[in-house]
């Protein structure tokens, strides 16, 4: 807790003001839109859209399950993209005046990567939970060693690890680079994991019947539109949360710097008192 911040810190915080308040007019508007969209989605998904001929009401889980994983994938791709930008901005040779600007931009991209990965993990978790509930009803078990399930759970654990790596205290530049490298490895590894697991299943058993929500079954009409609408809703919600999270990450960085300043000041005081 800092009761009276140092003058330079205060300035710094104010300069960051436009970035650091987690609510601005635009995000408040976005939040209203997101919540309204969720309300409409609940109506569409739970009430207006018809039950499936084969799956009955359990098909309604699809409207959460499928958009979640789409948004999660989007988040992970964004993490990889932002991480590539971080590495590009902090590459050796980016020194001097340019270095300062590059550093600031690298930090921004680093925050984007962190926020996007966190959302990706959240929505992957939603996919896994709704998927296993659906599986309990349809297959009779919460879990099947299906290729897609295995891949998704590995994806989830990989990015949990990424978030764990990000949390570790370190010098911010080194941390940004390190997590950027890991994000790129993770995203490169994804297709490998996906295909190897695919082959594992197909070489050993008949292709599992594709009853998974959002599998290859053709869906049409109201269900199709509901799914599309849910996807748009999830995207807006993710965007809204993501912007807030980005700003909170900015605040966390400021707070870290502030506590460092405070420690330094304390140390100076101690030394002065000792003399």
């Amino acid at each position: 807790m800092i009761e009276t911040p140092e003058p330079d810190l205060r300035q710094q915080a104010q300069r960051a003001g436009s970035l650091s308040m987690t609510g601005s007019v635009a995000t408040r508007a976005l939040g209203v839109v997101a919540i309204a969209a969720v309300g409409v989605m609940a109506l569409l998904a739970l009430w207006i859209s018809p039950p499936d001929a084969v799956q009955g009401d359990s098909v309604r889980l699809m409207y959460v399950h499928v958009p979640s994983i789409w948004v999660a994938y989007g988040g992970f791709v964004l993490t990889a993209f932002a991480s590539a930008r971080v590495l590009w901005r902090t590459r050796s040779g980016a020194g001097g005046t340019y270095g300062v600007i590059a550093d600031r931009q690298a930090r921004r991209w680093d925050r984007v990567a962190g926020a996007a990965a966190e959302l990706g993990v959240l929505f992957t978790a939603l996919t896994l939970v709704t998927g296993s509930l659906w599986g309990k009803v349809t297959w009779g078990t919460y879990w099947q060693w299906d290729a897609r399930l295995t891949t998704t759970v590995l994806l989830f654990v990989t990015y949990l690890g990424y978030l764990a790596l990000r949390r570790l205290p370190a010098e911010s530049r080194a941390r940004a680079r390190r997590s950027a490298v890991m994000a790129l490895i993770a995203v490169v590894n994804l297709p490998i994991v996906h295909y190897s697991v695919d082959w594992w299943r197909t070489l050993h058993q008949e292709a599992s019947l594709n009853l998974e929500p959002g599998g290859d079954r053709n869906i049409t009409g109201e269900m199709y539109w509901t799914l599309l609408y849910s996807w748009a809703t999830f995207t807006v919600v993710a965007l809204w949360i993501g912007i807030h999270r980005y700003r909170v990450l900015r605040l966390e960085e400021l707070a870290e710097e502030a506590s460092l300043e405070e420690l330094l000041a304390q140390r100076r005081d101690e030394q002065a008192a000792g003399r």
């Binding site: 654990v157 690890g161 764990a164 570790l168 993770a186 490998i192 594992w200």
Partner: peptide, 21 residues
């Protein structure tokens, strides 16, 4: 990193999944 011992398996095992398989 101070918690490298505990973090490394969490990071390494999912990545190594295709090799394992």
């Amino acid at each position: 990193l101070r918690s490298a011992d505990t973090l490394l398996p969490l990071l390494l095992i999912p990545v190594a999944a295709p090799v394992l398989l």
